[in-house]
Design a protein around this nucleic acid. Structure first.
Length: 561
RNA sequence: CGGGGAGUAGCUCAGCCCGGCUAGAGCGCUUGGUUUGGGACCAAGAAGUCGCAGGUUCGAAUCCUGUCUCCCCGACCA
């Protein structure tokens, strides 16, 4: 492609709307332009990369027997009401104003709709259905460019099986396909166990890329590969040990002592002698959650334990529920349900709030003083704690979710009546799995992992072009003739070539644009080297340059590729 | 939703606090010329209802009120 005739608008300065490197570079290199918050137009160069990614996805999905569909984005609302997901998605679901339609944020319902009545026998199963399609989610806060948008391209796949064993097979196939896709795209990623959240279902795993721009927090063990979303992550943090003798309960006046740190400093005690209290509202009923020291409550774990809706109590509700404000709340005399983290199990001689402002209580014995207390794993794992599997240090960091695979089970098939007859003539619900990849996130994550201060550094097979051919001073007839011939010859050899044939523009402009756009190989043709019948090859990643004879150029390139 | 920042030329921004001549700069763009191995130079030029609406004032980019949009942080850590 000739740069002089292409729409590849590059920017010298960083755009004000972008913060993370991939976002900045995608705008500067002319891959995307923003239309509105979380809504982007793909420009030709960006879309060329996106198509390469989609081709890889298609190949790998077809490899595991996937069949490509294209479902509508515009869906009748009533089908979403049948599965209860109009309410479950809430404000995230886009509603059409002048007809009872919604814009689909995912497609379980539509897959189930089409399966119903057509998948009627165990002989029709299994099926793997997938599509690459635009999804709509009314994100309250889009961010980081295309990483979280209100409109985005997703590869979503669905397996239909007659039983759990079949689902296991489909799940494993997707696990394999996803690894192949991300490997081929050249990404460094890892796989974590995850909470299935609002999707329902049992097992689920996320494919993640480490990044400051990530929205998930992950615990990862370098030495054994243990990786889990902090929503479900565990460590081998040790429970407190019960002391031989329990003291009697006693009150302590603790003016202006609000936090556990304050309390420890004030009483000169260890964090592991304290129990922090937090009050949650579980379906209108208050629950006191006791944590060891400064451990934080993992609300996902808490929700899984309690069921129903769980939210932290508002500050103005605290006094009515407990008799005290934040900082002085505790288990003694608390009139509602109390649950505690496992690390506190059967602890004694503990300090906690007195449910009276500016007072704490010491000598608490959870066995003696708090009847009916329940213990669960409720804490958030912290960096530096020991891995639950191998005992090495865990690293906790942010990550971007590239893909997610779920074992759904029969939630949607039962809700929508997707039934088949098994070998014995018995009617059963189809067992479903659901699998998604954020297509644009692959591109953004690739750039996050492959750039320098000059720009993007592509590599095969995502690179939009193999070679960036630069003609310096195209007014010089020898340069012009040589580059024109090279442009044709290289394409005949099967290379995709971006040809900077612009007549205007100094050498510096062309070099900088080439570095910004980031094709793996640059071929630089200038008068100086041409006098000796030579041209220069530059490796974008290493920066290494080599001057070769014109006749040997193709051979040199063959060695590189 | 809560908090913070921003909206002035295609882009990046100054001017606003403390109202006052024709609203500026750099980059980009157009024309002509000189240049051509790391974002060149000279000359001439086009380009902005200062986000929108209302108000205060003799006078508003600047002050006040409302509103829209965009970016960032957070999602109630006792």
């Amino acid at each position: 492609m000739r740069l002089s005739k292409s729409f590849i608008p590059t920017l010298k300065e960083n755009p004000s709307e972008a913060v993370i490197p991939s976002h900045i570079l995608m705008i500067r290199a002319g891959l995307v332009r923003q239309l509105s918050a979380g809504i982007y137009s793909w420009l030709p160069l960006g879309y060329k990369v996106l198509r390469k990614i989609m081709d890889i996805i298609r190949e790998e999905m077809n490899n595991i027997g996937g069949q490509e569909f294209h479902y509508p984005a515009l869906n009748p609302k009533d089908i979403w009401e049948q599965t209860g997901r109009v309410e479950a998605f809430g404000d995230i679901l886009f509603h059409v104003k002048n007809r009872d339609y919604v814009l689909a944020p995912t497609h379980e319902e539509i897959v189930a709709f089409h399966a119903k009545g057509e998948i009627v026998s165990y002989k029709d199963l299994p099926q793997i259905w997938y599509q690459i399609q635009t999804k709509f989610r009314n994100e309250p806060r889009p961010r980081s460019g295309v990483i979280r948008g209100r409109q985005f391209i997703m590869k979503d796949a669905y397996t239909l099986d007659k039983d759990e064993a079949g689902l296991d097979v489909g799940y494993e196939l997707h696990d394999k396909a996803y690894r192949a896709i991300f490997d081929r795209c050249g990404l460094k990623y890892f796989v974590v166990g995850a909470s299935s959240g609002a999707m329902g279902g049992s097992k689920s795993e996320e494919f993640m890329v480490k990044s400051e721009a990530g929205e998930d927090t992950v615990a990862y063990c370098e030495s054994c590969g243990y990786a889990a979303n902090v929503e479900v992550a565990q460590s081998n943090a040790q429970p407190i040990e019960r002391e031989n003798e329990s003291k009697e309960i006693f009150d302590i006046h603790t003016p202006n002592v609000k936090s556990i740190d304050d309390l420890c400093a004030f009483l000169k005690i260890n964090e592991r002698q304290t129990a922090k209290s937090r009050i949650y509202i579980n379906d209108d009923k208050p629950v006191l959650v006791l944590m060891l020291g400064n451990d934080e409550v993992n609300e996902t774990k808490l929700t899984n334990v309690l069921g129903g809706n769980v939210r932290p109590a508002h500050p103005d509700e605290l006094k009515e529920i407990s008799g005290a404000d934040a900082g002085s709340i505790g288990p003694i005399g608390f009139k509602h349900k109390i649950i505690a983290d496992l690390l506190l199990k059967d602890g004694n001689n503990l300090y906690s709030g007195a449910n009276k402002n500016d007072y704490h209580i010491g000598g608490i014995d959870l066995m003696r003083d708090v009847p009916n207390i329940e213990y669960h794993d409720l804490r958030i794992v912290k960096s530096g704690e020991k891995c639950i599997r191998c005992g090495s240090q865990l690293d906790v960091f942010k990550a971007i979710e590239l893909g997610h695979i779920f074992k759904l089970g029969t939630k949607y098939s039962e809700a929508l009546g997707v039934m088949f007859l098994d070998e014995t003539g018995k009617e059963k619900p189809v067992v479903m799995g659901s699998y998604g990849i954020g297509v644009e996130r692959i591109l953004a994550c690739f750039i996050e992992q492959n750039y320098d201060d000059k720009g993007i550094i592509w590599k095969d097979p995502l690179s939009p072009f193999d070679i960036h051919l630069i003609g310096l001073n195209m007014k010089n007839s020898l340069v012009a003739e040589t580059t024109e011939k090279l442009y044709n010859d290289l394409q005949k050899e099967g290379f995709e070539v971006l040809f900077d044939d612009r007549i205007e523009g100094s050498a510096g402009v062309k070099f900088n644009d080439a570095d910004l756009l980031g094709m793996p190989i640059q071929i630089i043709v200038g008068e100086k080297n041409l006098k000796e019948n030579k041209v220069e090859i530059k490796n974008r990643r290493s920066g290494n340059k080599k001057v070769v004879e014109l006749e040997k150029l193709i051979d040199s390139l063959q060695e590189i590729f």
